[in-house]
Every structure is written in C-alpha cells, then in structure tokens.
Amino acid sequence: MTFGEEWDALRSQAAARQKVRMQLDHVGGGGTSSAAGKADLSVHADDLGAIGHEAYKLYNRVKADGDQARVSSSDAATQLTRDNFTTGSALTKVVDTWGTQLKTLMQACAHISNHLDYSAASSRENDEEIATNMRNADGKSMSVSLIDKYFS
C-alpha cells in the first residue's frame, strides 16, 4: 500500500467516526459541501441568556468572595517586612499577583456575560428585521415561490 492509499484510508476512517459536524454560512439542501444538511450545531437565545446569566453570577461571586483575604494578607506582609523577614516581600508579591488575577477573572466573566447578552439581543433584532423584510407591500408574508426568485 502506498502512502497516498494509506492516507486516504485513514482519512475515510476518521470521517466515518466523526459524529459531530459544524457548518457555517450555508443552509442545507444545496451547495457542494459534503456535510450539507447534516450540521447539528444550533444556538438558542435562551441558551445564550442562561450562560450569560451564569457568567454574571460568577462575576458577582468572585467580586464578593475573591478578595476576602487581601487585607489580612497585606497586613501580614507589612508586619513580616517590618520584622525583617524576607517572606514579607514574597507575600506582598503574592497579594499583588492575586489581585491582578482576580481582576482578570472578573473582566473575563463580565466580557462573557456582556457578549452573550449582546449576541442574544442582536440575534433577536436580526430575526425581527428579516421577518419584516420578508413581507409584501401589503404586509402579508411573501410566498415561497416569490422568495425563491431571489435565489435564482
């Protein structure tokens, strides 16, 4: 068996084992993609909202609970430094690093929450605009045959 034949066989086996496929910028039933009509990735505004809400709750929880030890740790670092212990400066560095990491985590949670809220709202607005634009001058929904003319 040549390398090319072996490679083709391995690719075929991998494709046969693949259960999940994602397809972007295409509606099933046409086109040249071998995965046409088989895409199984879908996102619903309710799902986005739920994930965004969980990110918002995590943000609030991290904000409230993530900084509890800062004051006592800073005080301990100051006292250790005054008493000429080298661990005082090390503890100061730990407190500073923790604060930076905490802010980074909070920003990430806020970013996720805000982005998913925006995505859900944007998707809803896009759907409403499409529904509005797919009407005749008299306000009735366009027929399938009329819509099909736009794609011919």
Rank of each mutant, 00 (worst) to 15 (best):
residue 2 T to F: 00
residue 3 F to S: 07
residue 3 F to I: 01
residue 3 F to C: 03
residue 6 E to Y: 00
residue 6 E to W: 00
residue 7 W to H: 11
residue 8 D to Q: 11
residue 10 L to G: 00
residue 10 L to W: 00
residue 11 R to D: 05
residue 12 S to R: 00
residue 13 Q to A: 02
residue 13 Q to E: 01
residue 14 A to C: 02
residue 16 A to C: 02
residue 17 R to E: 00
residue 19 K to I: 02
residue 21 R to Q: 04
residue 22 M to D: 05
residue 23 Q to C: 06
residue 24 L to D: 07
residue 25 D to Y: 06
residue 25 D to G: 03
residue 28 G to K: 07
residue 28 G to S: 08
residue 28 G to L: 08
residue 29 G to V: 15
residue 29 G to E: 10
residue 30 G to Y: 10
residue 33 S to K: 07
residue 34 S to P: 09
residue 34 S to M: 10
residue 34 S to A: 12
residue 37 G to S: 05
residue 37 G to W: 05
residue 37 G to Y: 05
residue 41 L to K: 03
residue 41 L to R: 02
residue 42 S to R: 09
residue 42 S to I: 02
residue 45 A to T: 15
residue 47 D to P: 06
residue 47 D to T: 13
residue 48 L to E: 13
residue 50 A to Q: 14
residue 51 I to A: 14
residue 52 G to C: 04
residue 52 G to Y: 03
residue 53 H to I: 04
residue 54 E to H: 09
residue 54 E to K: 12
residue 56 Y to L: 08
residue 58 L to P: 00
residue 59 Y to R: 03
residue 60 N to P: 05
residue 60 N to H: 09
residue 61 R to E: 06
residue 64 A to T: 15
residue 64 A to Y: 04
residue 65 D to L: 09
residue 67 D to P: 03
residue 68 Q to L: 14
residue 69 A to T: 03
residue 71 V to W: 09
residue 73 S to P: 01
residue 74 S to V: 13
residue 74 S to R: 14
residue 75 D to S: 15
residue 76 A to G: 01
residue 78 T to F: 11
residue 81 T to S: 11
residue 81 T to P: 01
residue 83 D to Y: 00
residue 85 F to W: 01
residue 87 T to D: 15
residue 88 G to K: 07
residue 89 S to Q: 12
residue 92 T to S: 14
residue 94 V to P: 15
residue 94 V to R: 12
residue 94 V to E: 11
residue 95 V to Y: 04
residue 96 D to F: 05
residue 97 T to M: 06
residue 98 W to Q: 11
residue 98 W to E: 05
residue 99 G to M: 05
residue 99 G to K: 07
residue 101 Q to I: 03
residue 102 L to P: 01
residue 103 K to L: 11
residue 103 K to C: 05
residue 103 K to V: 04
residue 103 K to Q: 11
residue 105 L to E: 10
residue 106 M to N: 04
residue 106 M to V: 03
residue 107 Q to I: 13
residue 108 A to L: 03
residue 109 C to L: 01
residue 109 C to W: 00
residue 110 A to L: 11
residue 110 A to K: 11
residue 111 H to N: 09
residue 114 N to E: 06
residue 117 D to A: 09
residue 118 Y to A: 08
residue 120 A to L: 02
residue 121 A to K: 08
residue 122 S to C: 09
residue 122 S to L: 13
residue 122 S to A: 14
residue 122 S to V: 07
residue 124 R to F: 05
residue 124 R to Y: 04
residue 124 R to N: 10
residue 126 N to S: 12
residue 126 N to A: 12
residue 127 D to S: 10
residue 128 E to I: 09
residue 128 E to Q: 13
residue 128 E to N: 14
residue 131 A to G: 12
residue 133 N to A: 13
residue 135 R to A: 15
residue 136 N to H: 15
residue 140 K to Q: 13
residue 141 S to M: 14
residue 143 S to H: 10
residue 145 S to W: 01
residue 146 L to R: 13
residue 146 L to Y: 12
residue 150 Y to M: 14
residue 151 F to R: 09
residue 152 S to I: 04
residue 152 S to P: 02
